[in-house]
Design a protein around this nucleic acid. Sequence first.
DNA 1: AGCAAGTATCTCGCCCAGCGAGATAAATTG
DNA 2: CAATTTATCTCGCTGGGCGAGATACTTGCT
Lengths: 174, 174
Amino acid sequence: MDEQDTGMKVVHLLRAITVELDRIGERFAGLHALHPTDVRALICLLDAARAGLPATPGMLGARLGLNSAGTTAVIDRLERLGHVRRERDSGDRRRVLLTVEESAVALGWSFFGPLIHEIVTIMGRFDEADQAIIERFLNDVHEAVAQGPAGPEERPHPAASASVVHVHPESPPV
Amino acid sequence: MDEQDTGMKVVHLLRAITVELDRIGERFAGLHALHPTDVRALICLLDAARAGLPATPGMLGARLGLNSAGTTAVIDRLERLGHVRRERDSGDRRRVLLTVEESAVALGWSFFGPLIHEIVTIMGRFDEADQAIIERFLNDVHEAVAQGPAGPEERPHPAASASVVHVHPESPPV
DNA sequence: AGCAAGTATCTCGCCCAGCGAGATAAATTG
DNA sequence: CAATTTATCTCGCTGGGCGAGATACTTGCT
């Protein structure tokens, strides 16, 4: 087999995995009366919590590519379901801090736990050297996708990039 | 480092890659006056075309988890933009066959081409044995995610699963 | 053949997520 | 302490997607 072919096969596998993970997220959303956006928001808030960073509506909206109105709506929904709580920051009283409730954490684990366990198991079937190779590969891919395709096409603010995007009326393909 | 830790690191990398690929898809959508759903539809149609399978609205709607009304709307939008064409199946005249126009294929490559090239390049930096390991790993992960998390929870029709999902009013989290 | 049942797609009317614009409240600066 | 900046929320609107039903064609039954 040619190296290019293996490369393309890997590209398609990565895309297929992405599609499936999206589908799983949607299923999770449907099962718990959430919208896909709400799930993304929860993931974002849990990431922040794990990293020990304070989560605010502003940061959440930027991360999700929503404007302030939409962000308020997402938080309203999650709060109504009891998954997050708003608290005024006592230091800077303009800010609202978002904390995820225990229920949300448990909810996430109950759904994604088995899948995570499965992937850890798959990793366990490789010896340490091979695990290192896999990790290196994924790291490289992550770096590649993190800086976006087609090189630095445009990235005004690293955080709030998705809010407005210019549209080329008719960009001639290739 | 402990094996579990490496496993979890890989899980987080996979999730991060998924998030970034989603973001890239959204950016692509915004740049070309498409909705995320339209992009997913194009990917789906291109996959079918590459596999040599006939694409119909029914199959597309099932794949995207849309009902028939939504499916019609997606196709209307793509057709209006000149990315797909409807053709009556001469054999079974109830059916409509969808063909993607050259413009759509070129469009996809112009955006995702560089990213694909980058990943192929990354793969090229590994020797053949390591490439095989990476491919095996991704294959295993793909199988794991393809059959969904938490085992066979429910899958009435393998195709049209996402259309209706039962909601447990309050499933107690583990 | 001819009619009932099944299948693939489309039309109509509604709901609600997200957007743009603007309001409010608190911190910072001169 | 007024003016400006920052963080969040409220209001009205657009449009993607849904449920229900219509339409057109195929297949099965007698």
